[in-house]
Design a protein around this nucleic acid. Sequence first.
DNA 1: GCATCCCATGTACCT
DNA 2: ACAGGTACATGGGATGCG
Length: 724
Amino acid sequence: MNTAVGWIFDIYIQGEQAAIWLRTENGKVLKLIDAYFPNFYLLPKSEDDGKILCHLLQGSTNVRNIDFEEKHIMLNEERKEKLLRVTVDNVCSYKKLLAKVKSMPQVKALYNIDLLHVQQYVSTKLKVAPTSKVELQYNNEHYLHSIRLIDDSEEIAPPPFTSLLFDIQTNSSVWSPYQHHNPIIGLEVKYEGEEQTLQGDEQDVLNDFSSNVRAYDPDFLVCPDPDNTVGYLFERVRKLQLNIRLGREDVDLQRLSKPLPYWFHGRVVLDFGYFNTFGIVGLVERSRFGMLTPGLASKWTANRTIESKNCYELLRRGYVIPKNEGYYEYIRTLKEVADRDRGSLILAPRIGVVHENVAELDFESQYPNLIVNDGLSYETVTPSGVIQRDDSLLPFVTKHFLKRRLWFKRLRKKFVRGSQEWRWCEQRQLALKMILVCLYGTSGCCWNRFGNVLCFEEINQRSRQALVKIKDIVQKRGFDVVYADTDSIFIKKEDTTKREYEKLATRISQHIDLPIALAHHYKFLLLLPLEMDPSGHMEAQKRYFGLLMNGELLARGIEIRRHDCPRFIKAFQIQLIKTLFDVEVAEDVDQIGYRRALNYVSKTIDKLVDRKVPIDELVISKILRKSLSEYKLTAPHVSAAINLAHMGKTVRKGDVIDFVVVNAGHRVPLRRVAPFESYNSNFYDWQKYREMVLDAAETVLSTFGFSREKYGLPPQTRLFHRAS
DNA sequence: GCATCCCATGTACCT
DNA sequence: ACAGGTACATGGGATGCG
């Protein structure tokens, strides 16, 4: 018997076996084999029917075993049912047998039939989350004998998985599975920060790529939009009749019906999107949460990931999983819906004045805390109230990961901002944050098989109640509420110190039994009117900016927060706010600050009109969310992407499109913008950029009566529309 | 041919 | 189809006018 310690990076089922791949402590890659026979459960219509079914199936082909088991079938019922478990001899015959059984008149319901085999295997046999650190014993034929979890939950660094990033370049502008007639002309490869581009004859490029993969021997292959990218690669390789190996095992390419995941066995292809934002550590958090392999964890949406977790937990508890039938909600009268189906509470921001000495008090993870503290779960929130149960599903699933997120959030502060450890903590806590927020988001979601809209509404309601409680408490103590949104409240009272605000937060926390803290202490705070509203009297939610007591600037929802806003506009807006607020007291903002700000606007526009702004400061950067052929409108970033495609560059779903506005009013959309990477002129559409400056100025200054007429064009001119 | 209104589309941001 | 939302910019069709 052999022993190894390592981290699992992939599991898949082949025939009657599970393959488990791991990276060991001493840097080796190991593949182990475990037997796996899929099964499903069926509920007979009656006890007699059970006997008949048992008899019928006993001798059936592909049936390996039949036995009776007691299982929970309903989330909210203690009762167990006597079910027939049908074990199938092979995954290949699973669907066939299932179809046969479905048509049998004695069958009332079927269970565990829409989980992936790998989920079933992990849930019922392996019982260890993928990416876990484990100690394994295996025989000389690499058959898994035993597995033991090693706790590495306090580890900050990721497991020693290795990854290679790549992207392909072709001449085709539009991709579909049937349009692979254009050769691959280049292939970018990145491994541990080192980048190289493979170019030349297609056959050489592909062979080079294969040798790169073999030489670096990565566990993960990361690329944008894997289905399309790998699909394209596959078709080209097949067309050229090359025998290129990208996985760790030999496959006969001509016999594969599709490339993923078979072509890559022994490695995992990941989507660049998730990988880029959350890193390997984020992926590990998601895998372990969802009991999913990294490949699935990076691909699956929030709902599927959460469902996977729920199913795992229920299988562990002796439940069987009903098929996800999709849309279901309680049938209710319109009045009931109107009464209950309300979102979070927002207290309208007080606009039109500069608020001074404002405290922002924030709940820490309000929704998860409500779920856990109040036991709000799919099965506990009923039309007649909330049932108290200490093992309810949603709180159970939430609790551990809530604690874990807070742990990394706190731990992060111990490291230098931007350091490797800091980034790992940040990525982990962000990945966990997303899971936690979505646990709330999916609680009433119609695609969630356990979803209960009453649960979702109850969480919202309790969130509103908590906010109202805080509002009452602070108002009773003489504070002024200037704005509140869901889990944060902005209050002020003259001469209150930071310490006093902090003490108040602590007091409230104790009073309402939810953690709340002073998030920011503002010297000046300006809440903004709704941009869409022509009167300027309506308040905008989630849009404000301010100057903190420590001199830092803070903004929400406005231009400087947006990734697609050109650097020049961002820098302008930041400087504008600094100028505006560069005074001692709020009254001076209206006069001195505003006057200086107007001055700065003029200066900026002069610079722009005189063509003195370097072109790279004016780049607008947007993500292409769909492949080009799916777009109905030629929006500016789509135009830029089409231009790139015409120049022979491959653009794909998920790509960042950098472009400059050269002639916003041109009749032909493609002429309005130019892709930045191929643009070698200093010319830009100064009128368009002047509008953007004025928009940014208006956001900051509208409160003080700013009007853009003085600077040229009338308000609300739509520049992308105007003829040139 | 052009101005204006209005809706659909699409991205980013927030919880 | 597959967390829930809001805010905002833009394109482009419909409409009306000269």
